[in-house]
Amino acid sequence: MWHRVSRVLVGRLGFLTLTLLYASLVAGCLATLIAQDELSLGRRPLENLVRTASEFARPSFLDVWFGNPHLEYRSDDGTVLRVENRQAVETHYLQGLASATWTTFRIATLGSLLGAVLALPLGVLTARNLAAPMPVRLLAKGLLDVARSIHTLVFGLVLVGIVGLGSTAGILAIAFHSMGTYGKFFAEAIETLDMAAIEAVRSVGASPTQVFFNAVWPAVLPQFVSSHLYIWEFNIRDSTILGVIGAGGLGLLITEATSLFQWGRLSTVLIVIVLLVSSFDALSRRIRKALS
């Protein structure tokens, strides 16, 4: 009786303590924010919001059809400096956008594949049920943890310094960071293997390769493919930002648009990103469902 009461009591008290701890943490964060006078929305938040939103609401790609074909740039005294065909300029921009999208997709695809290939041996070494020697296992796990905890952007910044600006830095950055996630997923897929089923196949006198192809492969392959699709999709999202640090692609256009305050162009780029990510997401979800 006393055991039960004390256990319930300790459980409740523990949860209460955790809740209080969390509440005090949040309170601490808020208090320091206010104390440093960081909790502000700027001078004219509403006005700025309306302006930005109205520019966002008119994405620049509309100019291809509705742009002014004779946009005149005049100096203060009225002389015409330059006449621009907005439609032609925007069409040109869209071509650049298409090639940037392809660059981003390429970075994500090659980076994911490289990450998966790098992670496979590490994942196998980390899986608990395969019982690799302890030091090797810890080393592999440590490598994966380090890779996972360093952000793609940080990897990218370092790699741009090593291999220079361009797609290669982006591919390597994606590969190194997602290697950590891949390794974890692979190890988990291997750990959920039904060892009894493998033992059963072995017990009919099958050779090790037969055991691998008849029991291990069919159980592990769908999970590998599905985690690959998942991380690939994640990397497409991730690689759009890599251009910001000089790896090329959509991120470059984002920096360009934001530094020139061209919210209309940023809106176009974001629409492309949303379309790219959501269509890939829909596709990969279908494939994963078919595989499970």
Partner: peptide
């Protein structure tokens, strides 16, 4: 606890029995 291989069909699981002579 002699489990079949879950992702294979019933027939494929039965055919595993002949792996020893295949």
């Amino acid at each position: 606890n002699l489990h079949p291989v879950e992702r294979l069909t019933v027939l494929e699981n039965v055919l595993i029995g002949c792996l020893g002579r295949t």
